[in-house]
């Protein structure tokens, strides 16, 4: 965990050092960008118990600002010696990205920047087995399936590069902070779709997007 956090902060530091905020008046094509997160597919290929399908739409207002909406579906199964847990549900995030590349150095469609997201997840969770042992013997129980929601924030840092004309690839590292959960503290979710695990105050995450960009017009950049 500490290593991932250190990695994230070192990367964002490099990003901050490399980029300087540019003038808002620079002419850059407005564009819609549609993306799909293949990191979820990769994680699912490595671990069948985690599923995450996620897409995003971002609106490039100018060279600096991007409005972003991300949404998807996730499910999670986990089992260990004393409990078996599962959840599934939908999530959405809304936020903004700030491109730190100078437009005069990169007039194209590349991106190096940071962003902020607010996330909402609506999902079901169930603990299908729960065992607990003490002086009185072994307790067997379940926590039945219930539906609830969670709110969270994400701090995002990442890059996107134009692989082919209007086709972008890029990654983002995310630090996720749980704001609240309707399940309460006693039944806190092990994992939240769209946010990942809830242990600790801030949890890391990663996205790896392949995106298709649709410029609105071909005016000067």
């Amino acid at each position: 965990m500490k290593k991932i956090c250190a990695l994230f902060f070192s990367l964002t530091s490099v990003i901050s050092w490399a980029g300087t905020f540019q003038s808002d008046t620079t002419k850059t094509e407005k564009a819609l960008i549609f993306g799909f997160d293949i990191a979820g597919l990769a994680i699912n290929a490595l671990n069948n118990d985690i599923t995450c399908y996620e897409g995003c739409i971002s609106y490039r207002m100018n060279h600096k600002y991007y409005g972003v909406v991300e949404a998807g579906y996730g499910s999670y199964d986990y089992s260990q010696y004393n409990y078996t847990y599962s959840n599934n549900g939908y999530f959405a995030r809304i936020g903004i990205d700030l491109n730190m590349l100078k437009p005069e150095k990169d007039p194209g469609n590349n991106y190096v920047g940071v962003g902020l997201r607010y996330g909402l997840s609506i999902f079901n969770q169930e603990t299908s087995s729960l065992t607990y042992e003490n002086y009185w013997g072994e307790y067997y129980g379940t926590i039945p399936d219930s539906k609830g929601s969670a709110h969270f924030l994400e701090f995002v840092g990442g890059v996107k590069a134009e692989l082919f004309r209007n086709v972008l690839i890029g990654w983002s590292l995310r630090l996720k902070l749980l704001l609240s959960s309707s399940f309460g503290d006693d039944n806190r979710p092990v994992n939240i779709p769209g946010m990942s695990e809830t242990d600790g105050g801030i949890n890391p995450g990663i996205s790896y997007y392949i995106a298709w960009q649709i410029p609105f017009n071909s005016r000067s950049k």
């Binding site: 991932i4 990769a42 890059v159 590069a161 692989l163 890029g170 990654w171 790896y208």
Partner: peptide, 18 residues
């Protein structure tokens, strides 16, 4: 911008390592 493309690709290696 080659650096950006390179870093966009190399992150997969970092994921595997971390």
């Amino acid at each position: 911008m080659r650096g950006i493309r390179l870093s966009a690709g190399l992150i997969i290696v970092l994921i595997a390592v971390c």
